[in-house]
Design a protein around this nucleic acid. Structure first.
Length: 117
DNA sequence: TTGCTGACCGACG
DNA sequence: CCGTCGGCCAGCA
C-alpha cells in the first residue's frame, strides 16, 4: 500500500526527549506512559532504550524523572553511580525508599492527562 | 537479511 | 505473592 501512513521514527528520540523535558520539577512519569503518548503503546522498552541514548546526546533530558510503572528506579544503573538517580530525585524533594518512589501515585505525571490537546 | 538484545508492561498459573 | 512468557520495535553484528 503506497498510501499507507508511516509512523516516522526518524524523530523517535526527539519525541521521547520532548515529553521527558516537559516533566515538571519534582514530578515523575513512566516509560509506558511516554510510549503511549507518542503513539507506541506497548513499546515502553523503546523509551528506556531512548533514555540510554540521552547520555550521548547533548540534550538536557531529566531521565531521572522516568521510572517504571511501579515507581521503581529501574534505570539507576545507567547513571554515573548507582545512587545518582536517587540523589537527583531527592534533590527535587522526591522521597525514595528501597529504590522506590514514595507517594508515587501523587507525584506521577501522566502526559496523556497533563498534555491533552 | 536474520537473529539477538533491551532503563517495560500485562497476562497467566 | 512470585516466576515466566509474549509482545513491542529500533539498533547492531
Amino acid at each position: 500500500m503506497a498510501g499507507r501512513v508511516r509512523k516516522h521514527s526518524a524523530s523517535f528520540f526527539e519525541n521521547v526527549y520532548d515529553v521527558v523535558r516537559l516533566v515538571p520539577h519534582g514530578r515523575v512519569t513512566s516509560y509506558g506512559s511516554i510510549a503511549e503518548y507518542i503513539g507506541l503503546r506497548g513499546s515502553a522498552r523503546m523509551v528506556g532504550w531512548a533514555m540510554n541514548g540521552s547520555h550521548t546526546r547533548l540534550t538536557d533530558v531529566p531521565a531521572h524523572r522516568v521510572v517504571n510503572r511501579n515507581g521503581l528506579l529501574t534505570g539507576k544503573h545507567h547513571f554515573g553511580t548507582p545512587n545518582m538517580m536517587q540523589q537527583l530525585l531527592e534533590n527535587e524533594g522526591i522521597e525514595v525508599v528501597n529504590d522506590k518512589i514514595v507517594r508515587f501515585n501523587e507525584l506521577f505525571w501522566n502526559p496523556l492527562k497533563e498534555l491533552q490537546i
